[in-house]
Amino acid sequence: MKKWANIEHRLVPCLFLAALLLVWQAVVESGLIARYILPSPQDVVIALVEILPVLKGHIMVTLQEALAGFGIAILLAIVLAVVMDNVPLVKKALYPLIIISQTVPIIALAPLFGMWFGYYMLPKIIVVVLVCFFPIVISLLHGLGSADKDMLNLLKSMGASRLQVFRLVKFPASMVNFFSGLRIAATYSIMGAVIGEWLGGTAGLGLYMLRAKHSYALDRVFATILVIVLFSMAVFQVISLMQYLLMPWQRKMQNDK
């Protein structure tokens, strides 16, 4: 029964997606919508195969920007969350600022990054850091604060140092939250790099997409989007895999249910 529920869980969205693609294909084939306005799924796949040799270089650039930005965001977020969790004054001072910073539209700000940081990878990495940082720091802070007070006291009663309390209780207790923040940030990372590339540069998927759009090659635009989606999902899956490996207790808990 459980097994079937599991299969059903995966099968239903796949079938739905397949049905959607079929309808899309049929609509375009029948001529209801002109091909230069909306390419069919088949056109997109053909275009993807065609442009893949050229795209490879751009993919590498975007991936590098996204992963570098994501990595820096993770480090920054961990450092900041740990400091904020340990020094209440810092938390009081920074927490509202971090929230407000999220209301600043990055798209509006990003063109300035070109002026400030040039047109190579740095401004793109900064965009990625800015979009990824927020979900990680907020979820980690929340996680660190969610540790059971009695558990913390128990460790103190055993004479544990602050560092020991952090390592043994606070950090593990925050892992579930931390990973949900990481997964959200992971999906943002590639997109952040692409947005950065739209605003100027010499390589990357975002730049390629712009060029394809300017030459009205919508099949190539869609093919690039497909690549972005696939890579975003891949980063997401890597994070989920890491969680699976790093949190064996949770995995077993879910299996037992």
């Binding site: 059971d148 055993m158 207790w249």
Partner: peptide, 30 residues
């Protein structure tokens, strides 16, 4: 703190540690 052994009303076992590591805790802390 740190003088008496104290068992709380709740078991307060760390869910992320195996039983043996939970039991080791006071030794590791010292």
């Amino acid at each position: 703190t740190g003088r008496v052994s104290y068992m709380y009303q709740k078991d307060l076992l760390l869910p992320w540690k195996k039983v043996i590591d939970n039991v080791c805790l006071p030794l590791v802390i010292s």
